[in-house]
Nucleic acid binder design. Structure first.
Lengths: 186, 186
DNA sequence: TCTATGTATGTAATATAATAACATGTCAAG
DNA sequence: CTTGACATGTTATTATATTACATACATAGA
């Protein structure tokens, strides 16, 4: 990492997907520049292994949707994904995208970011985790963070009330390190 | 509590608003039956005081929206609120509801439940709190829970990554005490 | 009191997100 | 080579949310 040119420190919606990689597996690197091609390939390989083991099928559409989210490396709306699919010859109606996304989400390959009505590829499929997301309100970067402490606190408090937690949505809006700096010195 | 008249059942799809009151200020009572009329009046009074102090205006529409959410005592979609408003002679276009809801949310009188695309009245306006919501997947009850430990865990972990948290969305889907029991013994 | 100003409300039109319902295609077990 | 399960494609519709602009309404200053 830290192989960054001067061009991409002030990234935004338009970004070089390789040098401006966000949200990868290592939380410490989540907001740092690094070679994302590697992460993406790795995740995809792991997904295929998991799928084979689990008796479900990673069909062309589903696989392509996962690839798109991995390449893009940020949260995409269902209709953004759909546009890409349509351009590549897949169906161009909403259910095509939603079905693939739902499948991937159910199987832990992508996460739904409710705050953004969007989806992002999971960076550690297979590992059981209830993810916490950090969303930068300035550059829209999304990072997946270890959630164990948060989940523990939540589960404990809920148990006191007799509430049985099954699934959690934990999302934090704020400023990523880069945007923190640029906001401080404009 | 449990002082219910026979007149006012039959409100929502599931619950009697008075005897089956959910999510009030006391977390211990959150999922317990009690007289909600008292909570609602109390919250409304507090809201008016806060508004006066804060230099913002609780206009008729805004006040009515808050009342509706307090009466209903569950999460309502913007269009549900809108229907009620229209029936009472207010405007019947979406912005009418969204503007009032946005105002109330910004000022801490209602919360947005992203998982449900809905809004619920806040049961302790004024107290600074980043709420945690418990949502029953069976009966749709929503309870507001103390969030300090969860917030602390989240903030600490994020700070390690250099991320500055500004707002959080923490929602847990699961089974409330009542539905837990009924699911165990059907 | 009048009128300028900011804020709130009303309305129309549109954008964005998600689902329902049904037809067609594909593949593997029997 | 048929059947059944699953996946994909398409049409239509519902649900959620915002933009843009017009109108009313309060109130501070001339």
């Amino acid at each position: 990492m830290a192989r960054m040119s001067d061009a991409d420190s002030a990234s935004a919606s338009v970004s070089d997907p390789e040098s401006d990689c966000r949200g990868c597996a290592d939380p410490a690197a989540a907001f740092a520049a690094h070679d994302h091609r590697h992460c993406a390939g790795d995740v995809l390989a792991r997904a295929e292994a998991l799928v084979a083991a689990g008796g479900v099928r990673l069909t062309p559409v589903r696989r392509r949707v996962l690839e798109i989210l991995l390449e893009e490396h940020r949260a995409l709306g269902a209709y953004d994904v759909l546009k890409r699919l349509a351009a590549e010859g897949f169906g161009n109606q909403p259910p095509v995208a939603y079905r693939a996304l739902d499948f991937l989400a159910e199987n832990g390959f992508v996460h739904r970011i409710r705050r953004l009505n969007a989806f992002a590829a999971c960076m550690h499929p297979g590992e059981d985790h209830a993810p916490v997301f950090l969303i930068c309100r300035n550059c829209n970067a999304v990072a997946e963070m270890p959630a164990a402490p948060v989940r523990a606190a939540l589960g404990a408090a809920a148990a006191d009330l007799g509430f049985a937690v099954e699934r959690t949505t934990v999302e934090a809006m704020g400023l990523c390190p880069a945007c923190c700096k640029s906001e401080a010195a404009p």
